[in-house]
Design a protein around this nucleic acid. Sequence first.
DNA 1: ATACCGTATGTTGCATTCAGAATTATAGAA
DNA 2: TTCTATAATTCTGAATGCAACATACGGTAT
Lengths: 235, 235
Amino acid sequence: MLNTEANVLNHLEPAAPADAEVAPIERPTLHNTVVTRLRDMITEGQLAPGTRIHEGQLGKQLGVSRTPLREALKVLASEGLVDLVPSRGAQVRSLTPKNVKDMLTVLAALEELAGRLACENATDAGIAEIRRLHDEMLEFYRARDLLRYFKHNQQIHSAMIALSGNESLVLMQGMLQAQMKRIRFIGNRSEESWAGAVADHEEMIGALEARAGERLARALADHLFRTWDRVQDAL
Amino acid sequence: MLNTEANVLNHLEPAAPADAEVAPIERPTLHNTVVTRLRDMITEGQLAPGTRIHEGQLGKQLGVSRTPLREALKVLASEGLVDLVPSRGAQVRSLTPKNVKDMLTVLAALEELAGRLACENATDAGIAEIRRLHDEMLEFYRARDLLRYFKHNQQIHSAMIALSGNESLVLMQGMLQAQMKRIRFIGNRSEESWAGAVADHEEMIGALEARAGERLARALADHLFRTWDRVQDAL
DNA sequence: ATACCGTATGTTGCATTCAGAATTATAGAA
DNA sequence: TTCTATAATTCTGAATGCAACATACGGTAT
């Protein structure tokens, strides 16, 4: 009585939906891919603020028809990354200093909240994971590997917000963060400000591990405003 | 040397663009209209949570082709009002009690911030306008005109957030508010809770007029959580 | 020369069409 | 009868087509 391949599959298939452990196959839709791609192009400065977006041209450039591209633009508009003028197409939104300050004010409030919640709700495993990321990031700092440092930096921030366990908070913070990212590129941090940022992170991790909510909240907000101070002049 | 009409116009026309008093004519795009319409349909419960959205059917119902409808759905998805499952279309997002609690937590933080900022930045005229709306609302309360009361209530809330002068804050709060609106319909407030809400509003206005930031922040948050307590049981 | 008007070109907004995936219906076998 | 395999239908995702609007250009009249 051999198990044929068909039999095995028959057994597995009904079980698969119930088994929540197996990650579902990623099946990105085109417009989603385009959204992500455009977001990156904007945050990385590849599409500069004020740039007029030609649907036909950009579509051909990305190898996509206008339909998914337009859908993507609508989403980016609702995220505030592009402006959509009726009958006159889209253009990359340019940020005034006031815009930036406003976003930072909100972002700080959200991160303070996230910090407090994280200290209450985070699992020990979650905190340990942050510590791991942090230590890795320190390696990149010592090696002066700016790019990888940045990537880990972002990852740590996101992970810490995620520890709050508050979905809405993650969402809102993500939106603002996406906008801030593109000016953070401006803040070509000097050696000393880089060191300062690392120190900020040490404080944050320490507060988190001690589950000291208020301390973490303050650390997050301070870190944010220090970053702002550095960038401010460049506007 | 009479001023002919032409002369007058010649003088006026170059001035017209500088004259910001004339409002440009509204030219709503179809997808924008659809976004607004669908948002209303969802918040008013006309499209119940969990409802599967058939593009063809709904499009025909609204007298719109699938293209602008799809664009609208993408936007609503990014606002969190609908879920978008690849190859399986859209369905109205249903809120778990945790979702609601999370949103409220964030909303409270945002409104506290808004309250503090409003007390700092609001113009006297702005505050007076709120007072006017408030007094009008009281009339509707005394007349037990629930519908108009609700409308003014919303308006006051939005106006107070707007007084903060923080664009991002207005935007974020608006998104969350849109989601909360649909469950607020559940909270079929009793006579006494209605009276309580009115009292809350009195306190809010008073704090605003006194420009007492902390007091206003607390009033806004308290009001929010009281509303939540009332709705909570209905979930 | 300048201002105004009409035309021509290009771009957006929306509808329609086509292809592929998912769901339902149907037929057949255990 | 129930379950499975397969076919048919339905629906979504993306591309193309068409009409309307906006901008740019050129000509004419003052």
